[in-house]
Simulated scan of single mutants.
Amino acid sequence: MPKLLYITVNPKKDIERSKGRQIGEVFLETFKQERPDVEIVNWDLFTLDMPEMDEDLLYARAKLSFMGYKLEDLTERERSQITRMHALADEFITFDYYVFVTPIWNLGAPAVLKAFMDNLFVSGKTFKYAPGGAIGLLTDKTALHIQTRGGIYSTGRMAELESGDRYLKAALGFLGMNMMETVYAEGMDHFPKQIPEIMAAAKEKAAEAAREMAKIKVEI
């Protein structure tokens, strides 16, 4: 059975208080109608149990990568951290479709997104080293980013400063994923009276993206 991983990156649990979640729900409703055969799983990064890139995890990676250590040679803390990282990456790659719903905070995404992505860069699982440089292994996966923006980042001087969508697309692209065009709702802090129109347009784009993703078939 094909699977879609729906990843939310916002501490707001109430959908009515989160514009990103509202747009994401339109995507989900549309996608379910188009592809009832796909299992959908939700990960909330603010509650997800995942290791952070601390000293123990860094040493664990180095010891196993090029220092000649085996898993049983690591300290208990190092072994716990690296085992959790690999388990998260293993589970992540079992999905076929991915949707990330994030806000832009201070030019970028919430820090928890970077902490999560650090767990996915596992050599031999999501990418491999080759003579010409690293090669992504998730070439049969498709991902979409839904982002809410208080300011205007699609044009003008702020376009070069936006680093949330840019980072996510670069990271997932590095891992080999097929990236769809980002769905965004922007300018809501600048033009509060226009929020209904901005949201309506974003929801329509989300529905269109859902129909487009639904057309992409995967081998099971």
Rank of each mutant, 00 (worst) to 15 (best):
G187K: 01
G124R: 00
G68P: 03
E208T: 13
T8C: 08
K125T: 10
P36D: 15
K215M: 13
L137W: 05
S163F: 05
E186G: 06
Y6R: 05
I216M: 11
Y129G: 08
I220H: 14
Q81W: 01
G150E: 13
F116M: 06
G173A: 12
T102H: 02
P36K: 11
I198R: 07
I152N: 10
L120I: 07
I40N: 03
I93V: 15
R211F: 06
N119I: 00
R21F: 05
M158V: 01
A87K: 14
E208D: 14
E219K: 11
E186Q: 13
M53H: 06
M53G: 05
L57H: 00
Y129H: 14
L138P: 00
A115F: 00
K203L: 03
L175V: 11
M199R: 10
I104W: 00
E162G: 03
G176I: 07
F31D: 06
K114W: 05
A134S: 13
G136P: 00
Q33R: 13
S80A: 11
T102E: 08
H86W: 12
R211P: 02
Y69C: 02
V26N: 02
K3I: 04
L5P: 12
I135M: 09
E162C: 04
E160W: 02
Q147V: 15
I216T: 09
R61A: 04
I216G: 01
G20E: 02
A185G: 02
I7W: 05
A60E: 01
I93G: 02
R79L: 03
L48R: 03
Y167H: 12
N106Y: 08
A111K: 05
E91L: 14
Y129W: 15
N42K: 12
L5H: 05
D54N: 15
E212I: 09
E34P: 00
K141L: 06
R211I: 00
A143S: 11
F127M: 11
K19E: 08
K215V: 02
P110S: 09
M177W: 06
K3F: 08
V99E: 01
F31V: 12
A200F: 10
E29L: 15
K141T: 07
D140W: 08
K3T: 10
A87N: 07
R149Y: 01
V26E: 09
A209H: 10
M199H: 09
F174Y: 13
G176N: 03
I146R: 06
M199L: 15
M158R: 13
F174Q: 04
S163N: 12
K13Q: 12
M188R: 02
P51N: 11
Y59E: 15
L168E: 00
R157Y: 11
D37T: 09
D73V: 04
K205G: 03
R149D: 01
F92M: 03
G187H: 09
F46A: 04
Y6E: 00
I40Y: 08
G136H: 04
D14I: 09
D165Y: 01
L4W: 04
P131H: 12
P103V: 01
D54Q: 10
A143Y: 01
G156F: 13
E39G: 08
A60L: 04
L5F: 08
Y6Q: 05
V183G: 01
G68W: 11
